[in-house]
Structure formats: C-alpha cells, structure tokens
C-alpha cells in the first residue's frame, strides 16, 4: 500500500448536553462518531455531507481546535491527539487550515503583508528583508499582485481574501491543508478560479488536501477519493469516479440525485429524501439513516451496519450489501 500522510482512526467528538434546569450532563451530541479515513501524499480526499453532519467538526478536531474524545490522528505516524504543546506546533507547521468565511479569517487590523510576514516570523524564517521578499513571492504564487501587500482585508474581495488565506497557509510549506468549505462563500465564477488555483498548487508543491464541502460538483472536480458523511459517520468511501458511477449507499444516491443536471431532457428516477436529519442526541439503535432511507429493511431498525468492501477500494456501511 502507498504511504499515507494522514490516517484518522475511530475519531470521536462528543459534546455533552446539559440539562435545562440542573447543569448536569443528560446526553451527548455525537458530532463525530467513529470516523476513519486516510489521505495519501499529494492526494485529495473530499469529505461531503449535508450541513450539520460533522464535517467541519472532523476537520477541527484533527488539528485540535476542538477536543476529540477518542481515536487517533496519525500524521506521518505521529498521533496528533497525543502530542505536547511543543511537538504540536511543529506538526501544525505541516498541516494548515483554510476556513469557510474569508471575511472572518483575516485580522482586520493587520495589513496583508504583515499577516503573511507574521507567520514567517513565528516560524523563524530569516531576516526582516528575507520575510518581505518571501511574502511577495507567496502573494504571487496565489496569483495576486504585490501591491496587495499593503492593503487591509476590508479592501479586498472574497476571492482575493481566500487567496491571501491560502498564501498565508503556504508560508509554512504545509504538506496537508484542511480546506473547510473554502469556496462555499464565493461567487460561482470565483469558485472555479479558486478551485483551479488549489489544483495548481497541489501539482506544484505536492500538497494533500482534505476538502470539506457540501458541493458535490466541486468535490468531484478536485478529489481523488471521496468520503460521504451522514450524522457523524462516514457511510461510503470510494474513488471519485467510482462513487459517481456506482453510488452504493442510499444516502449517496440521494445526494448525487440532488445535483441539478444541465440536460433538460434527461429524465431519471430521482431518489428524494424526506424529512430532516434526525437530532444527533436522539440516536437510537440501528442504522442512523433508517428514518429517511428509501430502501429501509427490518434489519436496519435494530442493527448498525458494518463497513463492507464492495471491491475496488469502495467501502459502504449498508445492510443492502451484506453477504450472508
């Protein structure tokens, strides 16, 4: 098997729910429940799912912005969740994160140049002159003019800011970037530019991405592999093309069917989901998708499905594929 840059094993993030009257723990929101995946060097893993399914929490728990209850996050063999402060900062140099809202991701009181140079400074990069030079290089790497170095965030557009955020992340030469819905807040035309830029940078610097998004078309374009998440759990993982060609989990099928087609004559049987995602606190027994599943069986009500390999690196958590 090829070397993996990141292996996440059985990651769990549970938030305690306190009682309304007494501050005692009455239950847990299982935001991330037993999530495992792996990412190879220079490879993109797309993590898709609807709002509130735990995608963002997964990303944040991986770099300890949120505390995880259990599991392992192995970055080049080192478990991030177990590292001391010193080692953690060393690893963070290798893992960067891009946030959804480029308007909130930059300090409004710092010029773009200062923001990039600061990152170089805290990682002991050369002299002041060298840092200025590097900042100018970085900003050109993300295809922006050097003149922007003296601007403040409020003077830039969303797409430009997202590039700055990217330049800042690149300043530390990361091997992995967690992209948390990086294009969702942008206009469609700008989305394409940003996605292309991400692709170019990946080719150039051999960076791996964990690309978190709810937008399937973007994920399809970028990712080598895709993991579909539902209610805190990954329900299907496959290579991008395989997943789109043969979606196996009923949830994935519904998700793919929700992507609008540009061909008006194409009539297909659409699987439509009814209802909302059930509350994360009220998970009972069985498969967590059973309340909305079009293929629900007796078994789904009381037995949680195991991960089943349907061949070609395609894994599904569904009783439909269980071999008796």
């Amino acid at each position: 098997m090829k070397d993996m840059i990141l292996k996440v094993r059985n990651l769990k993030v549970h938030f305690p729910v306190k009682g309304e009257i007494l501050p005692r723990v009455v239950g847990h929101v299982k935001a991330v429940d037993d999530v495992s995946f792996r990412i190879g060097y220079g490879e993109t893993l797309g993590l898709v799912g609807e709002s509130g399914c735990g995608k963002t929490t997964t990303g944040r728990a991986m770099i300890r912005l949120i505390k995880a209850q259990a599991g392992q996050v192995l970055f080049e063999g080192k478990d991030i969740l177990q590292l001391g402060k010193q080692d953690l900062n060393a690893v963070r140099k290798n893992i960067q994160m891009i946030f959804q809202d480029p308007f909130a991701a930059l300090n409004p009181r710092m010029s773009i140049g200062d923001a990039i140079e600061e990152v170089l400074y805290i990682h002991n990069y050369g002299s002041k002159q060298a840092r200025r030079k590097r900042a100018a290089e970085l900003i050109e790497t993300v295809e922006l003019n050097r003149a922007y170095l003296s601007r403040y965030p409020h003077e830039l557009s969303g797409g430009q800011r997202q590039r700055i955020v990217l330049a800042r992340a690149l300043a530390v030469d990361p091997k992995l970037i967690i992209c948390d819905e990086p294009v969702s807040a942008l206009d469609v035309s700008i989305q394409a530019q940003t996605v292309n830029l991400l692709e170019d940078l990946q080719k150039h610097f051999n960076i791996a991405y964990l690309f978190i998004s709810h937008d399937l078309s973007v994920v399809k374009h970028l990712s080598k592999r895709i993991a579909v998440m539902y209610l805190g759990k990954i329900v299907e993982t496959a290579d991008s093309e395989e997943l789109f060609a043969h979606p196996s989990h009923p949830y994935t099928r519904a998700l793919l069917d929700s992507v609008p087609s540009i061909d008006p004559d194409m009539k297909k049987e659409r699987v439509l989901l009814e209802g909302d995602m059930p509350s994360m606190t009220e998970q009972g027994q069985g498969c967590r998708f059973h309340s909305r599943c079009p293929n629900v069986m007796e078994r789904c009500y009381h037995e949680e499905p195991q991960t089943i390999d349907v061949g070609g690196g395609h894994a599904v958590d569904c009783h439909l594929y269980a071999v008796e």
Partner: peptide, 14 residues
Amino acid sequence: EKEFVQAARVLGMR
C-alpha cells in the same frame, strides 16, 4: 471564536 483567531492557533502562534 473568530476564524482569524482560530487560524492564528493553527498557524502555531503562542
């Protein structure tokens, strides 16, 4: 909770 503060943490700032 602002993202630029979270980003600063991710970037390894003290």
